[in-house]
Design a protein around this nucleic acid. Structure first.
Lengths: 402, 402
DNA sequence: ACTATTTCGTCATCGCGGTTTACAAATTAG
DNA sequence: CTAATTTGTAAACCGCGATGACGAAATAGT
């Protein structure tokens, strides 16, 4: 029932790795990094008691991490209780940087985040990418990445990897966009079209948004459902602090959960999918508006200005979302549901209907629904942080650099 | 993106365990057990190459496991290729036994399984438990457990734990039945009512059924959805070979996924839940039959005898299941869906409508739906095997006994 | 039949990594 | 100013897997 010991480190190959002393060392290095990172600043003794190793062992681990430039010594702590005060350790503000990028429907954005989680450089280009060929778009993105990397390097950082958030389905290989309807990209391998040299990860923006919520949100639980709508409606399922990706990497397709099985036909082949009721197109139509760029902004503005048609449309969308989420919550029993992306902006008008539906259809206390405070920044930050987390999770990978 | 090294062994407390040499040893002992168990019989050298350790290291591990009575030496292998033949190792048929029990609506069952996975003792009592007080029911169950344990002990086994499958929701504490509608049990702590001394685990029958499918099914993937209906409709979600339990332990409540949001009221508070269309009651009503004991048997018999009313009712149930599963498949992207429990018996009449619905509502290749070959035995076997798996997953826990 | 080759299991030795124990340094409590 | 407490480090120790060598037991080749 508990996690099998022999599968402590599942591998892509499916074969269990041998458990050797080097692996133990690597895991303990990671534990030290995580402990210091979580608290901001910690003495060796505090790390030791927190991760359950002895002070002596932690000392050697810290020495190594300092040598690699991942930790730094801040000097003696202000003594608070009796005894010799410890020497404060902190995650280095130099060293590796995570480069995150976002291909949005109407913008490109890139940022660099240091090990401490602070954004140290950014670049944005506005303008629609809808229907454009991937090559020029990614060439522009490469330009932005170059600028951000140059800025970061001037600042004493070196890029440890590039993570790109895209509004579409990404294969489990981590670099092929299978289907991005709003960009009209299909089976596009971004590996060849982005700057070489940097380890690349591509993922769905909902996934990166969920990770941002997990890592940066305040009091975000380790089991939650993150719903994020831009044009389509995506969701990401986080279980025990890990993204649930599914066989093909397509998990979280909330937009095509049937809400009214006899409803209107959907592009996916189904009928009455959530997107037919709560997708951007559907909401615009229900509000009597035409499709256009920045439709989300228009909707939010009208709703804020008491436009009753728009409000009704958003209420109905909330109801549909509530029905779809009832199914998801029944299936997953998450600790909470978080609304992110464009949905966060509509929360005042969506939430009441959504929560009412959820409460009506569930026994006992309804699953709490909250709104992301990261808003549209989520996916970009999640992407950048995913690179940083990889370093924290296995510091030995950057042993040589620094 | 990969599993964080520092979280290799997640704990119930949420605090990361230190990584020590003893932990390493324990994990490697587990790897040896799993390797031998998976192949039935293996030489030390074969184990070594399979788990990536050296022959010398495996020798010491095997020595210890033999000393504990978990492995046994079968003697020299029949030489197949050049070189000295190895000495065959096998999991011991003596030693620890897993005791599984099932509280069904109309029966009680207990069995004991040895480390090799073979059923070595069993006991059953027929008769309804619907609405009975938990105390006498569990007293009877305790009696059956006593008989099975006695049989097993006569056979050279000792009970390593008791796992009980119940048709209802079980809290994450692993011993409290929160809600079992068909028994009419609520917030019942089974810990106090079952034989003391044996480590106890209680879980939903759908969960144990899914584990049985995972461990015993042929070619069952590590990511699948197991749907099991007795009276209600339960599901279990398996992700990466692990059960997804949810915050409260209630994950998998497929029966209350909304299928037609404006459909009939359900006891759960919702409307148009799957159970209103595919639950036993609903199917009986749709077929024009009355509720009675062994209704499932009656339905299967009538369907087999070309009763068109029953067949239509089952087809409609299949359609509703298809709609609910479309949502689940969109959300989870599992490798397959497995129908177990009573559903397995209805498969011939359910499957066509179910698969048609799933195919219609999904783009690309539909998620394959298969039928469990374990049938009604699943939960009982899963329970017993869960105890055995715990031993295989951490052999050191039984070091002293044997 | 005899030898060369291959593979298996074991042993002695080694290196790595965390623990134990001891101690000096730095602080508070009295 | 002394006793108590806590921190960080160093030295000795121990557990565990790796290495390399060796005898044992089989096949393959002549």
């Amino acid at each position: 029932m508990t996690a099998p010991l022999h599968e402590a480190r599942p591998t892509a190959t499916g074969r269990a790795l041998p458990d050797t002393q080097q692996g133990m060392r690597r895991r303990n290095l990671a534990r030290v990094m995580h402990a210091v990172s979580a608290e901001g600043s910690l003495s060796r003794a505090a790390v030791a008691s927190r991760i359950g190793l002895t002070r002596a062992a932690v000392s050697t681990l810290v020495d190594e991490l300092i040598r690699w430039g991942l930790l730094e010594e801040l000097g003696p702590e202000r003594p608070s209780r009796v005894g010799r005060p410890g020497s404060a350790l902190a995650v280095s503000g130099q060293g590796p940087a995570g480069v995150g990028a976002e291909v949005g429907v109407d913008h490109l954005a890139v940022c660099a985040v240091d090990l401490r989680g602070e954004v140290r450089a950014r670049a944005v280009r506005h303008g629609t990418n809808r229907g454009r060929d991937p090559r020029p778009v990614l060439a522009e993105l490469t330009g932005l990445v170059g600028r951000v990397v140059a800025d970061a390097e001037r600042d004493g950082l070196w890029p440890a990897g590039l993570a790109v958030a895209v509004p579409g389905l990404v294969a489990r290989d981590g670099h092929t966009v299978v289907h991005a309807p709003n960009l009209d990209w299909h089976d596009t391998d971004l590996g060849a079209l982005l700057p070489p040299g940097l380890p690349l990860t591509v993922d769905n923006e909902a996934n990166f948004g969920a990770l941002a919520e997990l890592w940066l949100g305040d009091a975000t639980p380790r089991d939650f459902l993150h719903v994020s709508a831009e044009i389509g409606i995506g969701a990401a399922v986080v279980v025990d602090g890990q993204l649930l990706r599914g066989k093909r990497g397509f998990a979280g397709e909330l937009g095509h959960v049937p809400v009214r099985p006899d409803g209107p036909r959907c592009a996916c082949g189904g009928r009455g999918c959530l997107e037919q009721y709560a997708g951007e197109e559907a909401v615009l139509r229900a509000a009597g508006l035409e499709s256009r760029d920045d439709a989300a902004g228009l909707l939010a503005q009208r709703a804020g200005a008491d436009d009753e048609d728009v409000r009704r449309a958003l209420r109905d969308a909330g109801t549909a979302l509530g029905i779809a989420l009832t199914g998801a919550v029944n299936l997953l029993d998450p600790e909470s549901v978080v609304l992110g992306g464009a949905l966060a902006g509509f929360a005042p008008w969506l939430l009441p209907a959504l929560e009412a539906e959820l409460a009506d259809r569930t026994t006992g206390p309804a699953c709490p629904v909250s709104v992301s405070r990261l808003g549209p920044e989520g996916p970009l930050l999640g992407a950048a942080h995913s690179v940083i987390r990889a370093v924290l999770d296995d510091p030995a990978t950057v042993a040589e650099r620094g």
